[in-house]
Amino acid sequence: MSGESPSFLERHQFLIYRLFSLAGFVPVGAFLIVHLLTNASILAGDGGRTFQSRVDMIHSLGPLLVPVEWAFIFLPMIFHAVVGFVIIANGLPNVGSYPYVSNLRYTLQRATGMIAFAFIIWHIWQLHALGKPFGGGRFDAHEAASSTAAVLGSTAVSILYCIGILSAVFHFANGLWTLGITWGLWTSPAAMRRANVVSIAVGVVLAAAGLGAVAGFRSLPADSASHGHAASAVHETLPPSSP
């Protein structure tokens, strides 16, 4: 630990940890919100049409989508994860001896971080184009609802998705609260309590959106595929959105 001269990382520890904290909020956290709310549009009750149109909107970025994805989602997420693992490795959770709520949250923050990370990898493999070379990548932007529904058709997968989503949501909402302390947004115990209520509310809304979407995809009527096709038929007239 105590090298003769501190390494680059050690010298810039403060900056790195702050960027880590920030990255968790924007863009990673912000993306989480957008993503979960987009998914929740499956609940619009129109057999996935709204959902498809949201997906289309995203995919309208065309060739820019990949760089945008990497710059605003993957790289920040990798950065957040790597620093996060360093932090986890250096901590010594002790809820056993100190079973206080905030300590439990500290420990859960780390646990959910790891679960969410594993889940995201799996999720990307399973649905994102990046997973294609490895036998995944089952999401089809043109058949957004049905391709997703196909994956979530498996109960086991759905359960794992629920766990992953809840972990990510807890990690984000709780992280929101600690971020406010880290950056000094709320300093007094009363302010922390108020911020806590807000964080919980955010968490509840996101959890509802996330779980709702899983349920929504699973309960897509059997003929949803055709709806999807209909939508994509319209879609066909537009220029291809992604390579």
Partner: peptide
């Protein structure tokens, strides 16, 4: 804000 500074706190509030 040097190494080992305030950034190390994980807000466990123990």
């Amino acid at each position: 804000t040097r190494q080992g500074g305030i950034q190390m706190c994980g807000n466990a509030q123990n």
